[in-house]
Write a protein that binds this DNA or RNA. Sequence first.
DNA 1: GGCGCAATGTTAACGTCGTTAACACAGCAT
DNA 2: ATGCTGTGTTAACGACGTTAACATTGCGCC
Lengths: 201, 201
Amino acid sequence: MTSTYHHGDLYRQALEQAQALLHEEGAAAVTLRALARRLQVTAPALYRHFRNRDSLLAALAVHGFRELRRQLLAVRRDDALEQLTGIGQAYIAFAQARPNLYRLMFGGQLLPRGAHPDLDAAGLGAFAVLQQSIDDALAAGYLNGQPAGPLTAAAWSLVHGFAELTIDGHLPDEQQAPGLAALVTRLLLPGGPSSRDNNNP
Amino acid sequence: MTSTYHHGDLYRQALEQAQALLHEEGAAAVTLRALARRLQVTAPALYRHFRNRDSLLAALAVHGFRELRRQLLAVRRDDALEQLTGIGQAYIAFAQARPNLYRLMFGGQLLPRGAHPDLDAAGLGAFAVLQQSIDDALAAGYLNGQPAGPLTAAAWSLVHGFAELTIDGHLPDEQQAPGLAALVTRLLLPGGPSSRDNNNP
DNA sequence: GGCGCAATGTTAACGTCGTTAACACAGCAT
DNA sequence: ATGCTGTGTTAACGACGTTAACATTGCGCC
């Protein structure tokens, strides 16, 4: 019984179980005591690895942003416009696959912005991928050469808003069709969804 | 001292103070005990008027949706397109003026959808205004006659996403300029922000 | 090989919260 | 006057975040 007094690996396992808890039951269920129970450990033990509950949640969000960045970077299409829409769809797919994590990342329950520098950095890291793909699309002559700043804000707003509205069930059912994500993403582009057929690379 | 044993007006005052608490310190601070303290009343007294804390928060959200609807309905422009963009800007202005309320309304912390029928109804009531203005714009020949469903989803996603990203400080500072809201709203329209000059009614 | 220190875990305790049960007072209808 | 219904209070329970004090382990160092 004394052989496992030192857990040895608690930080990593705590993060894993916290992710599971978050995914299964939402942020409100990510409680230090519940997490401790899962890990067969007493609650104060967790304070050796996380300053407090907010730090734990922030750590989860950081991992979320890094994973989101990874998934956005995994999108690779030849055409710059295809790349942009592909990233938009990957973004939405991420949010829909992990709604509770996504809400934690963007729900605004976390702290006065700037309290967790890691978190801000991770967020910017994910944002940068989207930004880059817009720059690329502009450089390739797409998007009518509109100013990059507002374009980026609009594109991010669109995918973020769509992601949130769907995972919270705010959009009427008829509009939940899977393919709609693609359609909406393309609506941003001049000429609408049926512009020309740039479907095949 | 016994003259005020019955508060007489507690439901209304509780809602008012809860709104103040929400606006000033966020949803997490809207606690039954804190609210009771503000009202010079014991906590269990509130259970005569709200089934539990979630019901109180839901009531706040319901009022929020009704107020949002009112503000959207107050927008009146002659041109259907101006009307649509005006509504978008009013929507964003609402969120920015009451960030904590807006987060409560859309943060997804409330309930399995359908648990509070009032809330769903109030949400649809606000949504309907946006929906209507899009239908009107289509009827007036704008928006290239694109299908109304996806258009509405896209428009709502755009304003919702922009509202959330700005109130949470996720957009880089340079893009926070006040006038950007208008610009972004117009980006959805075919031809981009400088289509023609439909600025003056 | 033993020693000591730092890391990591436990126990006990405090204050806050949501919530409920039991009770107390007020006002109104009869 | 009486009693019922609405509304408020008191007391208590369990869960939570957090801290202080203490216990155990493992590793570097002699």
